[in-house]
Amino acid sequence: MLNFIDLFCGAGGFAKGFEMTGKFKCIGGIDNKESAIQTHKLNFKNSISICDDIRNVPPEDFNVLLNGQKVDVVIGGPPCPTFSTIGHAKIQSVYKNQEEKDITNDPRNDLFLDFLNYVDFFRPKIFVMENVPQFLTKYNGATFEAVKAIIERDLPEYEIVEKVKVLNSVNYGVPQNRRRMILVGYQKGYKFKYPEITNWFKNGKFNIDPNNDNPDTSKLKKHISVEDAISDLPQITDNWRISEVEYSRHEELNSFQKLMRKDTGISVKNNICRMSNKRAKEVFSHMKQGDIYMDLAPEIRQILPFREDIFKDRLKRLVNENPSWTVLAHIGMDGYMYIHPTEDRTLSVREAARIQSFPDDFEFIGNQQDTYVQVGNAVPPLMAMKIGESVYECLNTIKK
């Protein structure tokens, strides 16, 4: 079993995926959100899970808390350093001035340097950093080049995977289109290969095979749909307040449902569902699957008016036969972008967690908004599991 630590861990979707391989154990996590850390502590019994700003916890102190356990892998998703309002010229200055590491005027945005500081201290065999796809393209690629330059300068014993890729979770059996940049660095002598895709969404805009520009889709499994993901979950209503409820059925489960329920009994937790106001529910009743706000007739939109030049898709009803669009942390605000395919309500916390591919034994701690946000901020565990399998394979290659 290989040990890893989880930086900017949130509830632990990335870590859960690594543990689902059966090859890795999470021994430590850190995040500055109290409810997320309570969730992390509950679900990772072997982890020292710390609620603090990583800037307040130098790796030397973290190592003391780990009682000197060896760290084989470091994973995490630090905020991108240059997605604030700074200009391109400021970024360019980063690698012109080798003494200057602050590549943004906002110190909260250089947290990736703290991530690399942990890598520098623990010297893991491999580290995995995830972020939004724009990490590679922001400011014509200057963001990525700045990060790459710092890694090459300060961590010379590590190589970065030759071509950093953006993965789509739908291609790894997750019922959701969610694209994430995955940057992998490993000690020289190892060789990393991105995980082979297993699923294909025929109508998908963002189907991506990181290893093949022209995959033979006939050999791939069909995508997992919203209906595949949630149709066996408990029958609930708008404003549902009971967390643990029995499943709606126990027979004729599909492979995804069986995987999600592998370690649960007849019931599941986190079925809390927010209450939508009367006007919203009336508008929901006029929406077909796939409809967005601007598909509605003007008189219907006036029931729940928004600025139509900005909020064209302020409301969106999911489609049973398709994967979901990306579940974002904004689901914690009102959920209008995630209207149930067939019911006039938004998704429950557990339904959103299923769409993120969290197994049903993974319990979220916190109030309603906290738990929704934890789900929306997470890396889908099934995609993380595939990444973990590739990491394990990399670490079993023979070093030069």
Rank of each mutant, 00 (worst) to 15 (best):
R301N: 09
P323M: 05
R307H: 10
P305G: 01
I331R: 02
T326P: 03
I331H: 04
F306S: 08
V319H: 05
D313A: 07
I300K: 00
L304Y: 14
D309G: 15
Q302H: 05
N320H: 06
R307D: 13
P323R: 11
P305L: 08
D313S: 13
I300V: 12
S324G: 00
L328N: 02
S324V: 10
K312V: 11
T326L: 01
L315K: 07
I310C: 12
R301W: 10
N320P: 08
L318S: 05
K312S: 11
N320C: 15
E321H: 03
V327K: 03
W325E: 14
F306Y: 14
N320T: 14
D309T: 14
P305C: 08
I300M: 00
D309R: 10
H330G: 08
I300S: 00
H330I: 13
I331A: 04
L328T: 14
D309I: 13
H330R: 06
L318A: 03
L328H: 04
L304V: 08
H330M: 12
K316V: 13
R314W: 10
S324Y: 10
V319N: 03
R307M: 07
W325P: 02
I310A: 07
R314G: 03
T326E: 01
N322D: 14
R317F: 05
W325Q: 14
K312I: 12
I303R: 04
T326G: 00
D309S: 15
R317G: 00
P305I: 06
K312W: 14
K316P: 01
A329F: 10
P305W: 10
N322S: 08
R314I: 14
V327I: 15
N320M: 08
L318M: 06
L318Q: 04
L328C: 07
I300E: 04
L304T: 12
L315C: 00
R307V: 13
P323H: 11
P305A: 03
S324N: 13
A329W: 14
L304E: 05
E321G: 02
F306C: 02
N322V: 01
W325D: 06
F311E: 06
Q302W: 09
L318P: 00
H330Y: 10
L328I: 13
V327M: 13
Q302V: 07
I303M: 05
N322L: 02
K312C: 08
R301M: 01
N320I: 05
F306P: 00
Q302L: 04
W325M: 15
E308R: 06
N320K: 09
L328A: 05
P323G: 03
D313W: 14
I331S: 00
D309H: 12
S324R: 00
R314Q: 14
L315G: 02
L328E: 09
E321K: 00
L318T: 10
F306M: 11
V319I: 15
R317P: 03
I303P: 01
D313M: 05
L318K: 01
H330E: 12
R314H: 09
I303G: 05
K316F: 15
N322W: 11
I310L: 08
I303E: 01
P323Q: 08
P305E: 09
N320D: 15
